[in-house]
Design a protein around this nucleic acid. Structure first.
Length: 302
DNA sequence: AAACATACCAACCGCCCTCCC
DNA sequence: TGGGAGGGCGGTTGGTATGTT
């Protein structure tokens, strides 16, 4: 007899998350860091199962998530990685740290699958690139991700949630439409921006992060717009949750658990990439010596 | 304007692996 | 050391939004 799903436990709430639940979860993770999910529902006062909390955090609330339209560049990466790795969404997501595996999976299923299907195979082959080129291109992407991560970790710790709730946008009662919080990233964005504004100028807990490797990395991400997206605001949700007390979470200039880190995981497992030869590729991709590689935008899939 | 079709995506399900007692 | 629980991940579902007839 199998284990009953955690969602079926008595008293466990299902369905879309409410703002209050998000606040509780973010507040809890901010204080204790991601991980030990079994304790989260109880300690955070959530009537959710641990799995639901982890998913909500990983797919929606964690810092550094970029939502919304995928760029052509991202599309290309996904298509190429999907061709290489298959439906290993978590592995693919590790190369696009700002995107969640769920997001990539959804995007593939709703957009890219059709797109690729409609591509004449000859066209695809004609535009195929050499492995060396592909590796170089991917390294550039990883460098971008590293920069974005550093940006995220550079912000100061913040601490107070208490003045955030009034910032919620009320439901659209006029239209009579049901208020679907889950899709209202704007609300969380507003909320967290307010939090960022009110955050105390306390000590920076950045010392756990060795950013020495960053210095020579090109900074394409410095153009990052200060939009009103959820992830933008969540970027303020800085380093406190990830300081040295969280021994699982650390990275140096030579390692590269950044991707896994952004998923609340501890390590990026090269073997998760499938074929054995990919671990070699992985090592190559994660080697900082490659950061000087030139990225050729002319490599076009379409 | 209503009914129906399609697209989208957050959340759930279930399997498998790992870890811990 | 073995079993149970937690966590990770890919597949699927269901609700909502949008487009079409």
């Amino acid at each position: 007899m199998g284990r009953p799903p955690c969602y079926d436990k008595v008293g466990v709430k299902k369905g879309p998350w409410t703002p209050e639940e998000d606040i509780k979860l973010v507040s809890y993770v901010k204080e204790h860091g991601p991980g030990n999910w079994r304790a989260v529902p109880t300690n955070a006062g959530l009537r959710r199962c641990s799995k639901s909390c982890r998913l909500r955090w990983a797919n929606y609330l964690r810092p550094g998530i970029k939502r919304g339209n995928f760029t052509v560049h991202e599309e290309k990466i996904i298509i190429q990685l999907q061709a290489l790795l298959g439906n290993k969404w978590a592995s693919i997501a590790s190369y696009l740290p700002e995107r969640t595996d769920n997001d990539i999976k959804n995007y593939w299923n709703t957009h890219l699958k059709k797109k690729v299907k409609n591509l004449p195979s000859s066209n695809f082959e004609a535009h195929s690139i050499t492995r060396g080129q592909w590796e170089m291109k991917l390294q550039t992407d990883i460098n971008m991700a590293k920069q974005a991560l550093h940006d995220a970790l550079s912000y100061q710790n913040t601490s107070n949630f208490t003045e955030l709730i009034p910032e919620f946008k009320p439901p659209d009662t006029k239209s009579g439409k049901e208020f679907t919080y889950a899709s209202s990233t704007e609300n969380i964005a507003r909320l967290l921006k307010q939090w960022a504004i009110n955050r105390p100028k306390s000590s920076i807990t950045q010392n756990s992060v060795d950013c020495s490797a960053r210095e020579s990395i090109p900074s394409p991400c410095t153009e990052r717009k200060s939009g009103n997206t959820l992830s933008e605001s969540l970027f303020w949700f800085g380093s406190a949750s990830f300081d040295s007390s969280n021994s699982e979470i650390e990275f140096s200039g030579t390692g590269s658990p950044e991707a896994g880190f952004l998923h609340g995981e501890s390590k990026l497992d090269p073997t998760a990439l499938g074929p054995t030869h990919l671990s070699t590729l992985e090592n190559l991709l994660l080697d900082d010596q490659w950061k000087e590689c030139v990225f050729d935008e002319s490599l076009d899939l379409f």
